[in-house]
Computed example of a mutant assay.
Amino acid sequence: MEGISELIERLRAAGVPLDDSIEEAMSSVDPSCFTDHSLEPFLGDRPVPFLITEGGAAKTISAPHMVATLLHHLEIREAQHVLLLGSKGGYLAALLDCMLGPDGVVTIIEPHDEVLLHTSERLEMFDSMGFLTVLPPEALEGWNGLSRRVDRVLVTGSVRTLPPEIEALVEDGGFVLGPFGGPVHQRLLKREKQGDEWIDTDLGGVVFGPMDLSESERSPLDPHSLADHLEDLLGLMSEVIEIEDDTLTRLEGLIISLRELPAGLPTLDEDSTEDEILEHPVMELLLMEMEWLGPLWPLFGDYMSVELANPGSPGDEEPGMSGGHEDLVP
């Protein structure tokens, strides 16, 4: 595949963890089989869209350095059963299939209908070695009694917690890998099951798109989405700077007020008029708080901006993998 060998060489030179099995899988699976979009971003070590939903949300295949990093931390062995929460278009499942061999199993749970259809169609054309299946979340009902449990769970979108029904599927000694946190910032956690306990290993800061695709399709003035972002920002900022008690109280009050707004508020889009925007209940609430909130907006912007890591880019003069990884949705 044109460009993949060079990409792998750049990733290795940048210190991205690439063992022989990961390199062989990435060399064997053509990412163009899972997206109709140009692979130019992918070959530049950036995420590439595989689907734009009817709601306008972009679903992406992760940047190659993140793909390799996730596969490395999964500690894959042949013949394991890996559960993917979120399909990433089928590309990750195809890589895992190559690494797991003919006795391996990859089960994909995809909550979004459009993505599920796309993934199913692409994997039908993929010549798999082992067993691949794509299922909706409701298929998990009754799985607790399965004879073959799950060795690894890879969560491909940000979540705050893992559903108990997923945790119940994990074999003792198995683990979950994924981005845990809010919409602004997450931690890549390896959560290993040891008896009745879960042992967490923090692998660094990341920024993934949400597992729940409806969050990406919300209006910019959706009160619950805005409250989630403010709450996440508040937690992140509190770790770095000291926030005055009065400001902290006001922010917490604003978050509560946003969540108490009634359901069914008008949806704004690019065709909304200035009057419609200014008269929107969320905007009215923000404007009432602008005297103290206004000076904070530039600070919010600084914390919301995330530099996308792409250590495998051909333009990197000083490649390296220091710090966390970012995996943004374009």
Rank of each mutant, 00 (worst) to 15 (best):
L287I: 08
I277Q: 01
G312E: 13
I256G: 12
E242I: 11
M237V: 05
Y303P: 04
M288S: 12
L286P: 07
R250P: 07
M304H: 04
G253W: 08
V240N: 10
D271S: 13
L286S: 06
T267Q: 11
D246Q: 15
L293E: 03
P295E: 06
L296Y: 05
P262R: 05
G264H: 04
S257K: 13
P262N: 05
E274S: 11
M304A: 11
M288Y: 07
M288R: 12
G320N: 10
E239P: 03
L258E: 04
P298N: 01
E279T: 12
L268V: 05
I277L: 14
R259P: 14
H280I: 07
L308D: 09
D246M: 13
E279Q: 10
G320D: 12
L308I: 12
F300S: 03
D275G: 01
N310I: 00
G312M: 10
T249Y: 15
G312N: 12
R259F: 14
E276H: 02
M321V: 15
M283F: 15
M237R: 06
I256K: 15
I243A: 11
V306D: 00
L258Y: 03
M290F: 06
L296Q: 05
M237Y: 05
W292Q: 05
E289K: 00
E279W: 05
G301N: 07
W292Y: 02
W297Y: 13
M288L: 07
D269E: 01
W292R: 02
E317R: 04
E291F: 00
L265V: 02
D275V: 14
L296K: 08
D269R: 00
E291V: 01
I255T: 09
V306K: 01
L251Y: 11
W292G: 02
N310H: 09
P314W: 10
E270D: 07
P298Q: 01
E291L: 00
G264W: 03
E242H: 08
P262L: 07
L278F: 09
W297C: 05
D245R: 13
L261I: 03
D302G: 11
S257R: 13
P314F: 08
D246G: 02
L248A: 09
M304F: 12
R259D: 13
V240F: 09
M283Q: 13
